[in-house]
């Protein structure tokens, strides 16, 4: 695999109950590539958390998954409101989700912490009123 493989997904921000389709799709594709199941688990959970965040907070966005010989990189880009306080958002239990979203089982304030937990590198670029880009890397070796 010399050329990186790139999967691109549009994350639909309107249908909250079926959110996660891109992550399930990624999981299937990575499985077909024969990657280690635990790596696939980490990639797909990290991506799902990001996808859910884009649906809850940013009315959707775009996701790119880039598979190279030594890593899987996930780039999640939205044009939402941006994150006011990244440090706070990274704390377990901190959430700005509404109670109706919490009643669906989300908004526990564990999304970003889980993304960090399951990736080897994570970088958040955010600007209020402009949007957020999250990059995560999961090393294969």
């Amino acid at each position: 695999m010399s050329e990186p493989l790139v999967f691109h997904y549009d994350v639909d921000g309107s249908d909250f109950t079926s959110a996660g389709q891109a992550s399930v799709f990624v999981k299937r594709n990575l499985r077909q590539l024969g990657l280690d199941p635990e790596i696939i688990r980490r990639v797909s959970i990290a991506m799902y958390e990001g996808e859910i965040n884009m649906v809850i907070h940013a009315e959707g966005g775009e996701a790119d998954v880039i598979v190279t010989e030594d890593a899987v990189e996930i780039v999640l880009k939205d044009h939402g409101p941006g994150i006011a306080d990244v440090e706070k958002a990274m704390q377990e239990g901190y959430s700005t989700a509404t109670s109706s979203i919490q009643s669906l089982g989300f908004g526990a304030g564990m999304g970003l912490p889980n993304m960090k937990r399951y990736s080897d590198e994570m970088q958040i670029d955010t600007e209020l009123g402009v949007g957020t880009t999250v990059r995560m890397k999961i090393r294969l070796t």
Binding site: T17, S18, A19, G20, V24, R41, S44, Y48, G105, F106
Partner: peptide, 10 residues
């Protein structure tokens, strides 16, 4: 709900 199915897969 539907999200449970997705989480179970992931």
């Amino acid at each position: 709900n539907q999200n449970v199915a997705a989480v179970a897969v992931l």
